[in-house]
Design a protein around this nucleic acid. Structure first.
Lengths: 209, 209
DNA sequence: GTCTATACGCAGATAGAC
DNA sequence: GTCTATCTGCGTATAGAC
């Protein structure tokens, strides 16, 4: 460990290349349709070599998710440094996740896939980051609720789940397919529907039922 | 056509049983995780028999989707008979689709699965119903926009896509897992976030003319 | 650690008797 | 049309040489 051997750096770089490919393929096709053969073809290594770095296909996905969560946590720090209101901070996060999705950087994992899900919740690196992310978002959410900038009738976990769900909202892709809007237009439209709703608010009445 | 023989009715009933099982399994596990072996085990027939009725796994999913779309079209007729406002009609549709999802009646098909998607868009029965559904919803959407009850800045197709997307919103399942809310409470919460947004509207920034 | 070659299992689909 | 038994391809994972 005296010298950070050059060889180790090369290996680390290779693992990074693998995870980058996995991330892209996960965003394109999702976990089920992504095959390990595609990954090794993309990276340009043999399949057995990949399995020297990662134990399973699920471990590949977990590594990709850790990478995304790390980037998300870094983004949260950036946003916090801007000293926005809690509500605007949440909007900034949502905007960032939508940009990630449109840029093909957001892996899409089947929500209820049991094999992958088990692997993820058993992965400490993944769960730690997920918890931290939830905590930091939760702080903004409760602060926004206290300020009255989020609807007081909404439970905090509903807001949290909704933010996570909008990070992989298929409406983004559908709107892009229509070809009529720029990526930034799409993002602003979806931000508005997420935070302000589809309906035009009426002057002095709460919506009933 | 001559009278439908009793034998044909039995066969039809068997196909209905198959599609019902497929529908349930699709709602539970999604297309990828549903296996044909599970379907035949659930129905209680041999696999070769199933393939006498349906050409492929994709054809099974298409039949299930046709069934769902037919139920949706029937529901639309019900709603139209109530003579609600366009906005309330759209809300009623959203409420119905959420109920279907919580009841385990809404198949979840991976949005960008190419093999299945190709099969679906090649299926005339499916596409016909999808078009009709889109048309009928589109009429309500444009009417609501004309009345000013939907945000005028929103493109009609965004509203349509959003309604489709919310029919399989994973937030429903996440909230149910928390165990704190009844199904109807969950539906009303999500209806509100969909149509009125997460944010509390500010008091006097919404002049209505 | 990297490679070629291969084992293994699973899931979709079919053959052929009845 | 229904069954049992089988074929086939593919995708994950591993053996063994270098």
């Amino acid at each position: 460990m005296a010298k950070p051997s050059f060889r180790e750096q090369v290996l680390q770089a290779r693992e990074d290349a693998i995870v980058a490919s996995v991330n892209r393929l996960l965003a394109e096709k999702g976990f089920d349709l992504m095959t390990v053969d595609e990954v090794v073809a993309d990276v340009g290594i043999a399949k057995a070599s990949l399995y020297k770095h990662f134990d399973s296909k699920e471990a590949l996905a977990a590594a990709a998710m850790v990478r995304v969560l790390d980037r998300a946590l870094a983004e949260l720090a950036q946003i916090r440094a801007q000293d926005l209101s809690p509500l605007d901070s949440l909007k900034a996060v949502a905007r960032w996740t939508m940009r990630q999705q449109l840029a093909g950087e957001m892996p899409s994992l089947p929500a209820q896939n049991s094999s992958l899900r088990q692997a993820l919740i058993s992965d400490k690196a993944y769960m730690d980051r997920l918890m931290q992310l939830s905590d930091e978002l939760g702080a903004w959410i409760t602060a926004a609720l206290a300020q009255g900038s989020l609807r007081s009738a909404l439970p905090p976990e509903l807001v949290l789940y909704t933010l996570f769900a909008r990070a992989c909202d298929p409406v983004l892709g559908m709107l892009r397919l229509s070809g009529q809007y720029s990526d930034e237009q799409i993002i602003e439209l979806l931000l508005q529907t997420c935070f302000d709703g589809l309906a035009q608010p009426v002057a002095n009445a709460k919506p009933r039922r």
